[in-house]
Design a protein around this nucleic acid. Structure first.
Lengths: 132, 132
DNA sequence: TTGACATATGCCTATATGGGTATGTAATGT
DNA sequence: ACATTACATACCCATATAGGCATATGTCAA
């Protein structure tokens, strides 16, 4: 079978970069579709489709006002993502400690294996370092 | 064009439910592929492919040990998701306050529009309530 | 070397998508 | 009524899957 439908859940809906941009843009204040089109530089039908997906999973709410439709992001629907990610918080804290400890140990024994003890790379570590 | 590649970033990789399961399973301790297969009840080639995707975006690390390969989730790579989601934290708190205020106002004036003031639905609100 | 075990890849298929373009529809203006 | 504005849909197409199955690769054991 193919990939799961983007309309299935927030995780899939948010996997699309443009939809994340839309969500950020619509956070805080409601806006008509046209504003999104000009703000993000996308084609109008494209925006409509993304909004459709976002609406289906509850990530945005819509309200009609005359001939325009005002959208705003429903932040509440992002919470499940937040909670899932925070499940791993304790683990990345562990990793932080492990790295720090190893770094300090190396510094103590004057090892040159660590290039710059003051700027330990944590944001984008090498995906697959040779361990041992 | 089609949807963005799942190997492009963590958001896409995590959109797949099975991959989320794998990440949870591999959080905390490293495990050989076989364990994942039996634990999650997936086909071995399927697991290998998911691991490949997860590795490409840095969500898991791999280490060889004899004829097995030990995988563990790299929690650090989940942080960007966490941070993105937490961007919306202030908004869902706003919504919380708004709902609470309305609820309290209704309770004060004895309105019956709110069925049960004590259990305000926040987790899965109606995606598109008729506003006005 | 031969064989068993642990994983990774290759290949094929059905499907879901996102972009682009054209068109449908509803609301407002003249 | 007619034109215009603001969106939503329909349709077509190229593409990236994910699943299932067969097979290749790498490692250890006898």
């Amino acid at each position: 079978m193919a990939r799961a439908s983007t309309t299935s859940d927030a995780f899939n809906a948010v996997a699309e970069p443009r939809r994340r941009e839309i969500l950020s843009y619509l956070a805080g204040s409601e806006r008509p579709v046209g504003d999104i089109v000009t703000a993000l530089g996308l084609e109008q039908p494209s925006v409509s489709k993304h909004l459709r997906v976002l609406r289906n999973v509850g990530l945005v709410r819509m309200r009609c006002q005359g001939r325009q439709k005002l959208y705003r992001t429903n932040a509440e629907a992002i919470r499940p993502l937040y909670e899932w990610a925070s499940t791993f918080e304790r683990y990345w804290q562990h990793q932080l400690n492990r790295v720090k400890e190893r770094a300090e140990a190396m510094v103590r024994q004057g090892s040159a294996e660590l290039k710059s003890p003051g700027s330990i790379e944590l944001q984008s570590p090498d995906p697959n370092p040779k361990e041992k």
